[in-house]
Every structure is written in structure tokens, then in C-alpha cells.
Nucleic acid binder design. Sequence first.
DNA 1: ACTTGTGAATTAATTCACAGCT
DNA 2: AGCTGTGAATTAATTCACAAGT
Lengths: 255, 255
Amino acid sequence: MATGRTHRPATRSRGIPEATVARLPLYLRALTALSERSVPTVSSEELAAAAGVNSAKLRKDFSYLGSYGTRGVGYDVEYLVYQISRELGLTQDWPVVIVGIGNLGAALANYGGFASRGFRVAALIDADPGMAGKPVAGIPVQHTDELEKIIQDDGVSIGVIATPAGAAQQVCDRLVAAGVTSILNFAPTVLNVPEGVDVRKVDLSIELQILAFHEQRKAGEEAAADPGVAPPAVARKQHSTDQGPDGDVPAVMPA
Amino acid sequence: MATGRTHRPATRSRGIPEATVARLPLYLRALTALSERSVPTVSSEELAAAAGVNSAKLRKDFSYLGSYGTRGVGYDVEYLVYQISRELGLTQDWPVVIVGIGNLGAALANYGGFASRGFRVAALIDADPGMAGKPVAGIPVQHTDELEKIIQDDGVSIGVIATPAGAAQQVCDRLVAAGVTSILNFAPTVLNVPEGVDVRKVDLSIELQILAFHEQRKAGEEAAADPGVAPPAVARKQHSTDQGPDGDVPAVMPA
DNA sequence: ACTTGTGAATTAATTCACAGCT
DNA sequence: AGCTGTGAATTAATTCACAAGT
């Protein structure tokens, strides 16, 4: 794809790498903090440190968006905030429904950073009729029967699934049938969706298992003490920071 | 690293790719489901479908662990469950502390899949003295003052941070100072940790922003309808399944 | 003098495609 | 005949290192 890309307007080649897209929110958060402290400009070095990446990566990432910096100076904070927000589609408002209002669903509903960016909780939905009408985070919970109507009326395209694993696929199917095309899944299940629907998962159990793997590795190394040529510094994985490749996450689920 | 790997026992070359490690829990979950249904063997094709990956990737992943399959037949489910569990370090028990018992912390404490694999909630910790002693998920909440003592007494090496963003770094520092070397961070902040400490993050806001990016892209394409040579099939990104590269996740946080 | 933007080099991950074993 | 295991090819991501601009 790098080789034979069909010629383009030259000013902006569509197709930002996924790895870059996944970091843009990180940069945006760091920039927003700077903006709140009224910092006018920032260098790639400083911003990279704040976002927990290295500066070459950050510059390369930004190069996919365009040339928004000034050589010898750095980046204008406000301008970059705007450009990244626009690139991520945060200049518009995204109504979101949360399905499954247990502990986790309630935590998500209460999450402040939600509204701060372009997301708005359009509805909270739960299968328990006893929950209906009860306000969570100031929003009354609605019954699952209303799901299709809510999605169509509010033009919801993003759904969050925080149900038990057993209900997730069924909820997913209804969301998709009603018009949702992006799903954030907290249930520990693989969701099957048709072409054109994006799913991202958040899975606590998976994350813990990945940590356990590295933890075990560390414990084993104490004793190992390889008596060979022993490459001193660089040999070890670049632990800490940096979440490595892949894009997994753990699913949380009440009860 | 692929080129100049120091000669090894040949039977097992240390160094499983990060991307593979991140998928092992996925395979394990699928295998556990098969095991519960008493399925004795499974082919790479079937297992891959259940885990939501393609079979070549799965086979390559397994090849890093060793040769645990039988050509012409497939994999023995029980045997694979054991091998992967061992590789992930799940044959031992990992005490975990959860710091910050808001909505999210409570959701995590109640999460069933916790104990089912090798993880055990050693303690729930919160800074609010009013919470102290109150049971959540059957475990009494303890005050932050006890943090160091708990970690040392129980030999805790994995900590989960579910505090507000403002408290996260401070909690992290205390966890690390007390001996924790793996952290799962739900607070929307970059954590600074010393070499040798692993951090993974779970960030709701980041996940939603990534979805918004793709959602915006989809909306834009409706109108685009490129009248050029129009590469029909393969051209579009492989949406759905597959979380793409990187390894980000969103942070959740109560209020 | 300083910092961006980016080709080129490197490293990692994925996918192909088939030899090798059951 | 069927399915694994894996070299080889491909594609993606990261890092280097420096030319180009202010």
C-alpha cells in the first residue's frame, strides 16, 4: 500500500495509519491540558513527553495530518487542538447510547470526560424493567424495548455495550439493525458484526492476563541471570510506557 | 532482534511477540468455552473463528509456544488450555489491589471473571475515610493509609488504578514504591513509572475518539463516490473485527 | 541556533503458500 | 485427505538522521 498508492491531491494523502489514529486522542489530551494553562506553543519534544511517546513518532504522526508546525519554534497549541479535533471528528456532536446499566454502565454514564469531548449520552438502556425511569447520572434509564426507537430518533451511530457477556451479541445485533455502525464493547465476548461496522473492545481480564505474562517473565529473570555474553542495557524490552502493538483491551462486566 | 538472536535451546526461543501475547487471552477464552462444552479437539480454522482472528495468524502465534497440535487433526483443547495458561502465568495466583472504589472500582471488584482466572482481589482501597470498612463485593474497603502494608503483607505485584485522574500518579508512585511492578490504569492520565514497571491503560475516552474518527470517515465516503478507477473489493479497510495495531484503550473514571 | 518534516533504514506484524506429518 | 507448522513475502509501524525552513 505504501508503494502503489493511487496518485492523490498531494496536499493530503488520505489514509492515516491506524497506529497514528490511536495516538491522536493522547496528543489531544496533552494539548488540552496545555491550552488550559494558556501555554501558547509547544515543541515536539515537550508534547511527546507529556503524551508519553517519543518525539520522532509524534512528528511522523503529525506529518500525516499536514504541516501544522513552525520550524525553529514548535506547534501552536490552540491551532493543533483544533486540527486534531477536526481530524478525529470531534467538532461535531456524537450521540451515544449505553446499554446495560449495572455498576459499569453507571460508571460510564457518570464519566465526566464524556461530554467534554464531542460525545453526548443520548440514552441509558437496560433490560431490567425495574430500572426503567430510575435516573442514573441525571438521565432516566429506558427499557430495551425502546432501543430501536431511540437510535432512530436521535440518529445514534455509536453504541456502548456494558451488559453481561451472554446478552452482548444479541444487543449488538439490535444496535446494528437499528443503524449503529460503531460499537464499544465492554463485555468479554467476541462480537460478530457485518462489514462496515467497527467494534472496539475493552477487556479487563485480557489486560490483567497480559500483565501477568510480563510479571511472570520478570520473576523468572531474577533467577536466570544468564551467564553468557549478557547484553547489558538495551536487551530488555522497553517496559513501562508504551502499550506495545495490538490494540486489545479488557472487558469489564458487572456480576 | 529476529536476525541476531543469540543461539538458544532450539526447542523454545524466548521472546514471544507482543502482538501474540495480547491474543493469547483471547484464544484461552475461546478454548475455555470449548472445554466447558467438552469439545475434545479443535482445528486452527474453528478456533480462529471463535476468537475472531484468521487461522494463519493463530497458527503462527501458537508456533511461538511450541508444537502443540497434531497435523491432520487439530489441537487438543484441554492440553492447549493448560499450555496457554502456563505461558501466561495463570497457573499461579496473582493477588491484585484495586485503588479507588467509585462506580468503576466497584464494577471491577464485582467482575466475576476476576477470580475465575488466576487473579484474586487482595484488597480494595479508597482515600475516603467514610468508605473504610464498608463491604464492596463482599470485601471491606480499606483506607489508603494501609496501602503499603497490604502490598507487602500479601505480596501484591499487580495494582489497578480506578481513581480520578488527579490522584492517579500519586497512587501509582506509592504502589511502585511499595513493590508493585504491573499497573492497570483506568484513569485518563499518562503515568510515569521507573524502568521495569509495566503499565497498561484502559481509556474510554480514547476508544470513543477512535470510533468517532472512523465514523466520520464513513459519513464522508457516502458523498465521495470516487468516479475514478474505483478499486472495488479489497480497497476498503478491513473494518469490523480486529482492533488494528497499537494497544490503546480508554480510561474510565467515576465523576 | 533551533525545530520541524520526511525520505531511508530498521524492526515488527501479518499473510501467503506449501512442505511435512498424521 | 487433511491440517499443522513455518520459511518467505508482504505490509505496517517505528526509528534514524538530516535537509529545509524560520
